[in-house]
Design a protein around this nucleic acid. Sequence first.
DNA 1: ATTCAACGCTTTTTT
DNA 2: AGCGTTGAAT
Length: 723
Amino acid sequence: MSDLLTGLNPPQAEAVLHDEGPLLVLAGAGSGKTRVLTHRIARLIGERGVPPWAILAITFTNKAAGEMRERIVDLVGPVGREVWASTFHSACVRLLRREADAAGLPRDFTIYDADDQARLMRQCLVDEDMDPKRFAPRAVLGQISDAKNRLRGPEELAAEAGSFSDEAVVRLYRRYQQRLAAAGALDFDDLLMVTVRMLEADEATRNRYQSRFQHVMVDEYQDTNHAQYRLVRLLGAPQDNVMAVGDDDQGIYSWRGADVRNILDFERDYPGAHIVALEQNYRSTGTILRAANAVVALNHDRRPKKLWTDAGDGEPLAVAGFRDEHEEARAVASEIDRAAAEGTRLDEIAVFYRTNAQSRAIEDQLVRRRIPYGVVGGPRFYERAEVRDAMAYLRVVANPGDVIAFTRAMGAPKRGVGPGAVAKLAAFAETHGLGIAAAVAQADMVDGLTAAQRRGLAPVGRLLADLDQAARAGLPFDQLVRMAVDGSGLRASLETEGTLEAQGRLENLDELISVAGEYQASSDDPSLQGFLDEVALQSDADTVDQETGAVTLMTVHNAKGLEFDVVMMTGMEEGTFPHSRSDTPEALEEERRLCYVGMTRARRRLGLTHAETRGFRGSREYRLPSRFLAEIPLSDTRSTGRSGARRTEAVMPRSAPGSRPGRQVAAPARFDQGDAVVHATFGEGVVTAVESRGSLVRVRFADDGTERRLMAGAAPMRKVETA
DNA sequence: ATTCAACGCTTTTTT
DNA sequence: AGCGTTGAAT
């Protein structure tokens, strides 16, 4: 009991001791919020008699949920397992599977991920006879996602629609929902929206869950979107025992609908809310903290706060500039060797970058130096084509209506059955009231198929039937996956290929079989549906394993919630970080928060690197040091290599809060199409195009005939003749 | 009708 | 650089 409070500072204890009513915990980076969360839950269970299953604790990743559950079990014993600790999405799936009837869903509904969504949307564009050039599937899906995050269905969106293209999106939205429903599928955003709608519409179900969940707790509250906010309100009512934990300085997901206002307006939404601020940092050195604070303090849309530590200053931040990303990567590798030689474990070292593509140069060097590393993100295991191909067979078995999975399965391996043949099968299924999988078994009856296609389809029909039977008979999942891999001919076709790449794919398929076996062994209640759900809701962050003995590479976004002794932030350049697409004041503030998140992951040592040129989409671009480097107090840094903070300041004036990115600062020389130019490295050339309002120019060089994109303001290039 | 080869464009971040 | 779409070959 009192041991639940040992070692806690006064505000932490205050939060842990809070019993009933809304509670907002403003938890600065490294201030021990997870401890507060778990200890409070333990206290509610152990001392206040709250049943564990009456507590809903929402975390940002499945992994965080699992860790929280473990810590609660450590504190209160095995009953702690009964706490509903999960992500928003997992909690919604759990609810929806249980209440499928109330939600108006088929019990075996499928979850569509980004790839499935894009394929489905492409079909919708065809339906609506629209040009995928003009309406990029991803862009349309983005708008639909925004709408869903705001709980707007097609009709509500129609009411908001103004322009012609808005109306097009509404039509596509409507069609998209129809196709989803026909496939018995929900996309990620539906999981939230449908849950909210069900709870709002069905009083009995709502009452049941409201009385069940006596306490609702949400971590990373600054990153909740409107649908999530509604869900918390609904489940928290009427007692409003809602605990929100978060930090407005760490809101980095506004692009996916997160609204920092949720945390800023908590007191308004929950009158009488008790507020606790955790401002003592237990993680980083004074220098790291001071530097991170200095950067984020330039934002004006934030709650003022004063994070502090009683740890010493530690070492200065290392800021270093390099010629290009390869030299940068070499330095990063050397730095890792140095830290390791000093006794730092490799799994206490992390390298961050803004975009996934940047990992490549670093990986190359680490491989060369034989430094073990792991990459979080990038091409995910479950998103690899061959893995999706194999999974498609299981998905069809779980939900015969899933057209997307069906189309995929038909095309992999190649058996001469493409979209045309699938459409015929679908039409046949439709007119005969069959599932599309059943239609395959009767491919002989389908008009318009070639003899080769009939021959190809017959075994697939048998395979699907066999898989279905095996699944019903309770065959273990690894066997099931093996059946799909072998029976479909996926394995055979890769073996025939015989290339190194095919070899890798085969390994991935074997890996999938063993993952399925692990699921079988570790799940309380294994089911095909459960396996598919887990695969769909798996995130990159869930795969972070900090005890691997390897260096970790990841994007700054993925670093949220983690900490390392040594952190290196690479690519600290204008256009890279802050990213060139973040060109509004709001977006820039988010970049700054992202920078803050990255910096505050470091416990002892923080290095920041930048390169003067960076290979980008095939060509080479010039990069100025990031403004964020100039925002760090000079006295806290030690600069080496080309440039560093000192030079940054010379090039760029300190930016005021909310100022625009530095592209204006450098007053780009004006180039027009047709101008003849001379470049220090590439020689003479002609401007072929001007982009981005004049800050980028394309130049075709006479020496090697190549065309390069250059930053007008930064490239060592002058005009020799006006067009 | 499917598959293969070249062309052109680009998502930054992800549950 | 890689992907997906487009146009030509099977």
